[in-house]
Every structure is written in C-alpha cells, then in structure tokens.
C-alpha cells in the first residue's frame, strides 16, 4: 500500500501530461488553427500572440500549427518503431527464453553486442545504407530497438519457464504456443510496459536527433527535429521558433518518462 501512494504522483502526472499531449496530437491530425504550410509574407517572425500562440517562422507560417503537425509525424514514427521492435523483440525473446539452446546463446550475444553501441551511431550506418526518409528511420530504429525488448522478454520467459503453473499447464497437455502467449506473456507485462514507454521516448529522441542531423525525415515532410534544425538559423531573430519545437519534444518525452517512472514505482522496483 505504501509503495502505491509513493508511485502514484508520478503515474498520475505522467498520465495527465502524456494524455494531454496525445489529445493535442490527435487534434493536430484533423485540425490545426492555420494550415501548417500556409505562408504569409506579411506575418514573418511574429512573436507569440493570441493570434499565433507560438509565433510565426521565416515564411510567416504558424508555428503552433507546424508543431502540431510535426509532433504528429514524430509520434507516428515513434509508435511504428516501438510496435515493430516490441513485436519482433518479444517474439525472439520469448522463443529464446523458453527453449534456450544454441540459438538462444547466439542471439543473446548478438543482442548484447548491438546494445553496447549507441543507437545514433548505428542509425547513421543504417541510414547511409538505406538513405534518409521517414520509412527508413522507422526501419533503422525499429531494428536497433529489437535487442532491448528481446533481452527483457528473454529474461522473464527464462524465469517463468520452470515455475509450477507452467509445469502443470504442460502436464495438462497445453500446447507450447498457448503456454508462451496465453500463460507466460501476460506475466511479463509489468516489466514490458515501462520498457515500451522508455522505448517510445528513445524513439522520439532518436528520430528528433536524426532529423536534426539531416539523416532522418526529409524537408518536405514534417518533424520536430527538422523544425529544430531550421529554427537554429533564426535563434537570434526568432527564438520562439526553437522554444516551440523543442518544448514539444520535451513535453512529449517528459509525459512518457513520468509514466514509465510511475509504472516502475508501482511495481515496487
């Protein structure tokens, strides 16, 4: 009981913040106050005002609308990355953990070596193979994030494998597939859920860094990292450009990291 009250302030504030951000992003998918691409030569570099909540950029475009659109695509990319890597990672991890053997040994070694390298460095190499673009960012980060999920799931499955409820299920003639995904998988959720939120944050941050470096999402598409890279040129004349785009990244990441911290504390970790 004591642990629950302690974790809840993080869980609640994280849920509220990420909930608000998700709602804003959903809103941005259907409606933005201005068109994100509408240029207005008479309204260049306007500081934040009631008409333009976050000001306007070098083309007189409304930054709030552009942040909504950029956050939208960053969110979508991160979601795809996490879905891709989580599904594959859980699949690999569960099979390795449950069956063990030589394949487990080899795959674990490979995963360990991949996680030893910073994601950005590997993403740079992968993107120089595939070329930049939103799809390739998803592919690069998706592959790079598999090991973290595989490692976690492997450990959990190896731990559950020899427990009595699994043994009895096996004796009762339950099929391997059902044991893996109906009996063991739900038990890994308390560990998996914080990992998903952390993975989501890493995806947001990595995508932003890659787009910032020009090896991620390309200029005709929208991304918060791309906006930050643009805004750097106008740091002197229009600092609100950077604040708007950067603030969105920070709030998005903060919401989910509070959420994962809350979840972990709830688990008593």
């Amino acid at each position: 009981m004591k642990k629950k009250t302690k974790g809840n302030s993080f869980l609640y504030s994280g849920a509220v913040l990420s909930g608000v951000m998700t709602l804003l992003i959903l809103l941005g998918a259907f409606w933005t106050p201005y068109s994100p691409t509408a240029m207005d030569a008479s309204a260049k570099f306007q500081p934040p005002s009631p008409a333009h909540l976050l000001g306007t950029d070098n083309f007189g475009r409304d930054i709030f609308s552009r942040v909504l659109q950029g956050a939208d695509s960053s969110f979508l990319i991160a979601l795809c990355v996490v879905l891709f890597s989580c599904v594959l990672g859980v699949l690999i991890g569960s099979l390795c953990g449950y069956y063990g053997g030589l394949a487990d040994l080899v795959l674990t070694r490979i995963c360990d070596s991949i996680t030893a390298f910073p994601a950005i460095l590997l993403a740079l190499v992968v993107v120089s193979l595939t070329g930049p673009g939103a799809g390739n960012v998803v592919l690069a980060l998706g592959i790079l994030f598999i090991p973290s999920f595989a490692r976690l799931t492997r450990g959990e499955f190896a731990r559950c494998r020899d427990q009595n409820y699994i043994k009895s299920a096996r004796i009762m003639g339950v099929g391997s597939f059902r044991i893996l995904f109906r009996h063991i998988l739900p038990n890994t959720f308390p560990v998996l859920l914080p990992a998903v939120t952390i993975g989501f944050n890493n995806a947001i941050l990595s995508e932003a860094s890659m787009s910032f470096l020009g090896i991620g999402v390309q200029p005709t598409e929208a991304s918060l990292g791309l906006m930050l890279s643009d805004s750097q040129t106008y740091l002197q004349s229009a600092p609100w450009y950077a604040f708007g785009a950067g603030g969105a990244v920070v709030l998005l990441v903060l919401g989910f990291s509070l959420l994962s911290e809350g979840l972990q504390r709830q688990n008593g970790a």
Partner: peptide, 26 residues
C-alpha cells in the same frame, strides 16, 4: 528532486545546446 531529475532527462542534448547558444551566447 526526482521530478526535476526526470525533466532534465527529457531534454535532448542538442536542444539544451540551442538553449545555451541562445541564453549564454545571444
């Protein structure tokens, strides 16, 4: 303290860099 820690953790280094350029530089 933990919340503050979480906030700092959420800021990407390149954005801190831009903020530093703006505040301390400009």
């Amino acid at each position: 303290f933990a919340a503050l820690d979480q906030v700092v953790m959420s800021v990407p280094p390149f954005f801190i860099g831009m903020l530093a350029c703006w505040l301390f530089g400009l």
